[in-house]
Computed example of a mutant assay.
Amino acid sequence: MAVILLTGFEPFDGAARNPSADAVRAVAADYDGPHDLVIATLPVAFDASALRLRDLIAMHSPDAVIATGLAGGSQRIAVERIGVNLIDARIPDNDGAQPFDAPSEIGGPAARFASLPTKRLFQVLTEEGLPAHLSLSAGTYVCNHVLYTALGAVRADARAGFVHLPWSTSTAPAGAAHLADKDLARAVRLVVDHALDAEVTRPGGSLW
């Protein structure tokens, strides 16, 4: 039985809830396998999130890490492809830290590529009628920091990646783009179900 670590984030920037944590809890409430699903809510803080994530990975040795977070203003689910070794916080984190032009990991590579089957996940989400896209930037805030950290912390044969979610209907500020709560939970469940799939390839075997 594979172990899947699925995370969302606590609220930040004055919000009462974070739809990523809501979606993760909704998936866990109805989850019936086949994997062993471990869930956690990460702090929206650079140091604390990396420490918590590394502890979870060391404790559970997951076969896949799926981190989720909020991309307020987006109308689509973003399957992230790259984590960059850069922190440039536009607002303070929940611990009051606001680093700029700092590395996520001193001495680490400039970037790490998500090892989840990103194109397969995009394919699954769109085939299920969910608005999604492949993203080449997870930003430079805590979401990107968690993606970069996860990719450096998992076993060599394990997978890790990040999915950005829009606001949910029940959490969106007035006038903000959003998707139904049930659709966000459905999207996260699909990512869990297909996290260990083979990547999509072109005829002849090359990636898209």
Rank of each mutant, 00 (worst) to 15 (best):
V124P: 03
Q123K: 03
M1A: 12
F9L: 08
L51E: 13
A138Q: 01
R81Y: 00
R155D: 15
R189M: 09
V188L: 01
F122M: 12
D181L: 13
I77V: 14
D101V: 08
V191Q: 04
Y31H: 11
K182C: 03
S104W: 00
G8V: 12
W208N: 08
L190S: 09
S137G: 07
F100P: 00
V191S: 04
A89G: 03
A110D: 14
I91V: 14
G33C: 07
L42F: 10
V191K: 03
V44P: 01
A172Q: 00
D181W: 12
A48K: 14
G108Q: 09
F113G: 04
L86D: 03
P103Y: 11
L184S: 02
S61R: 15
F9D: 08
S115R: 13
P173D: 07
L136I: 08
R202C: 11
G69F: 03
L42G: 07
S20A: 15
L165M: 09
L51K: 08
R17S: 14
A153I: 05
I87H: 01
D13K: 04
V38R: 12
L184Q: 03
G152V: 02
G96H: 01
W208G: 02
P19M: 10
G139I: 04
A58H: 14
L37F: 07
L86P: 02
H133V: 09
R112D: 03
M1S: 08
L190T: 07
A110F: 09
V188T: 01
G33S: 09
C143L: 02
V3Y: 01
G205C: 09
G204M: 05
A29P: 09
A28K: 13
D193M: 11
L130I: 15
A26C: 07
P131Q: 06
L37E: 07
R120M: 06
L207P: 12
A15K: 06
S168H: 08
G152K: 05
